[in-house]
Design a protein around this nucleic acid. Structure first.
Length: 110
DNA sequence: CCACTGACGAGTG
DNA sequence: GCACTCGCCAGTG
C-alpha cells in the first residue's frame, strides 16, 4: 500500500463532510491528524482544484469566507453556488457558520 | 541550504 | 468587522 500522504488524509476528511454543512480548514486539518496545520489543508485542496472526487466546496476558512475568492473569483462563484444549492445559507460574502458548521461525532458536544 | 510564497488560524488594536 | 503580525509546514527557485 502506498504511503499515505497528509493530502490523502485531508481528502478523506473532506469526503466525510455531509451535504448542507461546511468545515473550516483548521477543522479538516485537525481531523486529518494535522492539528495546527490549517495551511496544509488549504495547500492540499489547492492541488485538488478542478477535481470533483472531493466536495472541496464545503471547506471554507474560519471566518466563513471563501478563501478561493482571493485566488480565483470565478471559482468562488461556483463554490458559493454549489453550497447554496445544498442548503448552506450565506450572509453577504460569508457562510452562516452559525448554522452550517459541520460537527463530527468526534467533536460533538452533546 | 536560504528566502519567498501560499485555498489558514489565532491574537491584538 | 477589518488590518496587521506571528506561527505553522510544503513547494519552488
Amino acid at each position: 500500500m502506498p504511503a499515505e500522504t497528509s493530502y490523502d488524509r485531508i481528502y478523506a476528511v473532506v469526503r466525510r463532510i455531509p451535504s448542507g454543512k461546511v468545515a473550516t480548514y483548521g477543522q479538516v486539518a485537525a481531523l486529518a491528524g494535522l492539528p495546527g496545520r490549517a495551511r496544509l489543508a488549504g495547500y492540499a485542496l489547492h492541488a485538488l482544484a478542478g477535481s470533483t472526487a472531493v466536495p472541496w466546496h464545503r471547506v471554507v476558512n474560519a471566518q466563513g469566507k471563501l478563501s478561493l475568492a482571493a485566488l480565483s473569483p470565478s471559482g468562488a462563484i461556483t463554490q458559493r453556488l454549489r453550497l447554496e444549492r445544498e442548503g448552506v445559507r450565506f450572509v453577504g460574502e460569508r457562510v452562516a457558520l452559525k448554522q452550517c458548521a459541520w460537527k463530527p461525532r468526534t467533536a460533538r458536544a452533546r
